[in-house]
Design a protein around this nucleic acid. Structure first.
Lengths: 204, 204
DNA sequence: AAATATTTTTACCACGTGGTAAAAATATTT
DNA sequence: AAATATTTTTACCACGTGGTAAAAATATTT
């Protein structure tokens, strides 16, 4: 049984988690050093290691935090409405995630690029199940003639790809357009265009 | 003036470039070690350093090779046909790139994730120019009533995002579906679905 | 205020990593 | 075949990096 965390622990563990997220997002697990995280968190390396006993521990905590947010986002997709409502709502949620957890999305990206050594099992279980459920719903829409006959799994990948692109490639997008999802107008315009194209692309 | 490269040089430099592409794709510049590349290239580290004088040199060569392929792909987009032909052709080219230069695409992704320290200038110049030309063409289509009134830049990002997703997140896609773009059937199905949704999404 | 628990700093260390120098081995040219 | 140029190996080294031990400083509890 865990002793409850002190005031200082709560503050400093969060500092490490936040700094870790930023650094891992840029350099991945291998490319990140504890010193970089400690610097950004404003503490010495031994001090940081008092809170997390290894680099891997920080990484696991960062991944877990991000993953929870992401899976929650995936599961919140309500299948009760029409295809139009459901897809619009799903794209909304994913854009929100890319805006509010941009660095987390990028940590996730580096993990996949590295071959998903930590997440592979989880992707093959929990996420696969979720995707399976979603494809069944979409297949139902096709059968009921509510949407065009498209391959469900590629529609899902499309939505993931586009929404995550704004987080994962934000450096490129900022260089090209001078803007990021943090700009309210840009955010709305991106979401509107993407939603419009996908809806018109699948609805009959 | 350069002395012409020997037979052995040509072979070994290519070996290093290929190995470097694979390793940088997984771990990015910082996370990659010369030893890893040397191992995969099947030579000792000092031997490798006889061909490229530093890790950065290998990285630059890998980036340049990939970038050339990518820019060529971007520029080959022929604006002579109808929007349908042009977009179909562009998606085709991008999918081909994701299939045939998957690791290169991922090296590119790690560079952007790291904040594009090497490519930033180039992105802000050459690529920006290309994107500017493309948006002008798309704007023309909108004005001529050939496609729906969508924001050109986000259509371009969409196409990039989706096509690159199959290369950059191939580890995830393989875990979820058991397939990659190397599988002919999967490749065709992915391209078909994406093309269909985007065309129906933008055409009137 | 004293006793105790928590947090932070100082001083390390072993191993990994980028890179070099020079000798040995191998290819190529004459 | 001998001379020369290229390639590979051996033996290093300085610095970076993950992590530890223990003392000092600070917070918290009694």
């Amino acid at each position: 049984m865990q002793k409850k965390r002190s005031r200082i622990q709560i503050i400093n563990q969060q500092k490490v988690l936040d700094a870790g997220t930023e650094i891992f997002a840029k350099y991945g697990f291998r490319g990140t050093t504890i010193d970089q995280i400690a610097d950004m968190a404003g503490m010495s390396k031994p001090n940081l290691l008092y809170y997390f006993k290894s680099k891997k521990d920080i990484y696991l905590a960062v991944l877990e935090q991000t993953l929870n947010n992401w899976l929650r986002c995936l599961m919140e997709w309500q299948v009760t409405g029409t295809p139009e409502e459901t897809i619009t709502n799903y794209i909304d949620k994913k854009f929100e995630f890319s805006r509010d957890h941009s660095a987390g999305s990028r940590v996730f990206a580096t993990e996949i690029l590295a071959g998903a050594p930590i997440l592979k099992t989880l992707l093959g279980e929990d996420l696969k199940t979720l995707v399976g459920e979603d494809t069944r719903v979409i297949k139902g829409w096709v059968k009921d003639g509510l949407i065009r006959p498209i391959d469900p799994v590629h529609l899902i990948f499309m939505i993931w790809a586009v929404t995550q692109h704004y987080a994962d490639f934000s450096a490129q997008i900022e260089t090209l357009t001078g803007q990021t999802l943090q700009d309210e107008k840009f955010y709305k315009q991106a979401k509107k265009t993407v939603t419009q194209i996908i809806l018109n692309g699948v609805l009959i």
